[in-house]
């Protein structure tokens, strides 16, 4: 108020103050109802989530003999033993001794496509994400089905192996690292409560309750894109929005960041593929 020009009379000042007071609760209520409306929108659509179409296709893909070796992925070890899909996603990323590397689900799928089905690594990573047309991504379908088999399972990322701990440390450093033309970092949007982009509430990934809510709702069917989006896609798009160099699909950096976020969500009940705007 010190900066108010002196010629403003008391009446105007009082009126301005009253206006500001009247506006504040109204804006708050409006914000609240918008968030409620989005929640209601999700609730209405939950019953017919098109993600199920991806899940169906993914299950078929999992059991189909494909690739140069013409074998299915049914022998793929997702961490709970060969061919065990139920609950596997809730413990990923994790260290895999056979590859001597920490892997998330999508990296593991590429690994299985290369080792079991005989694909060249470049072919296995050829189309990680659908482009919104009828050219659908197999990766998104497989992820949809495998994650749906972990519905209701509690997220339990062990973080016992030294390489897992290393990935977590790197992921944490990446989360706080600010860079790029906008001097942005993950922490800019996801390090404080009650931030949002337009009408989308942003989760604070440092708060366990928020992190659980966010992490357990990916992958998700995005209505605005008509595609099912995986966690690798989510990170890729965050990088794009930060004007960072493109996050390479299944790179160590992407796995490290996933590890940090997944571990922060430990204890949350997995509930995806979800439905998002």
């Amino acid at each position: 108020m010190e900066e108010t020009p002196r010629f403003v009379g008391w009446g105007a000042l009082v009126a301005a103050a009253a206006f500001a007071l009247a506006l504040a609760p109204a804006a708050g209520a409006q914000q609240k109802s918008v968030a409620d409306d989005i929640a209601r929108y999700r609730e209405l659509l939950q019953d017919g989530n098109p993600a199920e179409l991806w899940e169906m296709r993914g299950e078929t893909l999992w059991r189909t003999k494909r690739g140069p070796k013409a074998v299915s992925l049914e022998q793929c070890d997702l961490g709970l033993g060969s061919g065990v899909v139920k609950g596997a996603y809730a413990a990923l990323p994790r260290y895999f001794a056979d590859a001597d590397r920490v892997m998330d689900l999508e990296t593991r799928l590429v690994h299985c496509m290369v080792t079991l089905q005989g694909y060249a690594p470049a072919d296995a990573k050829k189309q990680p994400f659908g482009d919104g047309t009828d050219k659908k991504s197999d990766n998104e379908a497989l992820v949809a089905w495998i994650t749906s088999e972990s519905k209701g399972v509690v997220i339990n990322v062990a973080l016992t192996h030294p390489k897992e701990q290393e990935a977590y440390r790197i992921g944490k450093a990446m989360f706080f690292h600010r860079a790029g033309p906008h001097d942005f970092g993950c922490v800019t949007c996801h390090g404080e409560a009650h931030k949002r982009i337009r009408l989308q509430d942003l989760p604070n990934m440092l708060d366990p309750a928020d992190a659980r809510r966010a992490y357990t709702s990916w992958p998700a069917y995005r209505v605005s894109q008509g595609e099912l989006r995986t966690f690798q896609w989510r990170l890729n798009d965050c990088f794009r929005q930060q004007r960072f160099p493109e996050l390479e699909f299944t790179s160590d950096a992407s796995i490290a960041l996933t590890m940090f976020l997944a571990r922060n969500a430990n204890g949350g009940t997995y509930n995806a593929p979800a439905l998002k705007r």
Binding site: D47, G48, N49, P50, E52, L53, T133, D134, G226
Partner: peptide, 8 residues
């Protein structure tokens, strides 16, 4: 009856 169809 609940139906999900895949179509552009």
């Amino acid at each position: 009856v609940r139906v999900l169809m895949q179509h552009e």
